[in-house]
């Protein structure tokens, strides 16, 4: 296996990790504030559809991105109203959102475009194009560093860089700001926040909104960056993989990066059966490779990877008591 192949796999790892990372950070904000969200999947799917549909109609990926974020935010709002305002069950609300998104995207897609639930293929300005970072050309001649920079670091679409920047940003917000302190507190002991004179409802809605924005970018990236248009069920369980990664990451931003990179890597090598064959010496069933991220998800959720302690007030609506 040569250096270039390794770079190619890592390059595709980065691209495939991006939606997972964004969704994982989305879940991190929500769950750190005590709102469990299994609706990440549905929000991504809705964002993917509306961003692709809008980008197809307007020809602008940026307008598409905004539409995707809007769709995701609307579903977040629904989850917030159900689980924060009306203190409903967070799991049921999340499941409902997933079903709603799976059904609505195809239904609306068919009614708008008549392509069997798909959107037209996006071309030109309707997609995120790779951007070349400065000096990529100039450095490409330098051994090791040159190709590493030009192939792996440069040449991605903007959402990839946004996702990576979100990691230190999330860390800073959570652990170095007043908002972060309150957000973490509300996920651990909302009564402490309430008696300190801070609104539990306000904080939780803020967290759910951030979750919506991040899921929106993740979904938009699926349809307008990773692929060129929306197809039915294109989120393909990424929302659930992101949840597994979140548990794996013990609800910490940097660990979330590592966890989603691992999942992205598994998805990347499953696209390269030739490399696998040259490594292990025989043909591995492609289906088995495809299943790898999901198998890891099951293993993590079954609790094989150490004990992860979720935020203590997670999943429980806040009711004032004496």
């Amino acid at each position: 296996m040569d250096f270039l192949t390794v770079l190619q796999i890592l390059d595709s790892t980065l691209r495939l990790s991006t939606p997972l990372l964004l969704a994982c950070l989305a879940g991190l904000f929500s769950e750190r504030a005590g709102i469990f969200d299994i609706g990440l999947e549905g929000k991504m799917l809705a964002a993917a559809f509306f961003s692709a549909a809008t980008a197809a109609a307007t020809g602008s990926v940026w307008v598409g991105l905004l539409a995707g974020i809007g769709a995701s935010l609307a579903l977040s709002g629904l989850h917030g109203v159900a689980s924060i305002t009306f203190r409903g069950n967070q799991l049921i609300s999340g499941v409902a959102i997933n079903f709603l998104a799976a059904g609505l995207t195809v239904l609306i897609g068919q009614s708008w475009f008549g392509l069997g639930g798909r959107t037209p293929s996006l071309i030109g300005g309707g997609r995120f194009e790779p951007i070349t970072l400065p000096f990529a050309e100039a450095l490409s001649g330098v051994p090791i560093i040159g190709p590493l920079y030009a192939e792996l670091i440069s040449g991605h679409t903007i959402p990839v860089y946004v996702a990576l920047l979100c990691v230190p940003l999330t860390w800073y917000i959570l652990f170095r700001t007043r908002f972060g302190l309150r957000l973490r507190a509300v996920g651990e002991n909302p009564a402490a926040v309430d008696t300190a004179g801070v609104s539990v409802v306000g904080l939780r809605f803020a967290a759910v909104a951030i979750c919506g924005v991040l899921c929106g970018i993740a979904g938009a990236y699926l349809a307008t960056g990773l692929q060129a248009g929306f197809v039915k069920d294109m989120s393909a369980g990424r929302g659930f993989i992101a949840l597994a990664a979140l548990i794996f990451a013990k609800w910490r931003p940097w660990y979330a990066l590592y966890a989603t990179l691992l999942f992205g890597f598994l998805q990347a090598i499953s696209l390269r059966p030739d490399v696998i064959k040259s490594l292990v010496g025989f043909n591995v069933q492609i289906q088995l490779l495809d299943a790898l991220p999901y198998i890891l998800t099951v293993v993590i959720l079954a609790g094989f990877v150490g004990k992860a302690v979720p935020p203590r007030a997670g999943g429980a609506p806040y009711v004032k008591e004496r």
Partner: peptide
């Protein structure tokens, strides 16, 4: 007590009064 168990004493004291 209305304290956040995995916060430090200091963090608990400033919570809401930052």
């Amino acid at each position: 007590f209305k304290l956040v168990e995995n916060f430090t004493v200091l963090e608990n004291i400033i919570l809401g009064a930052e």
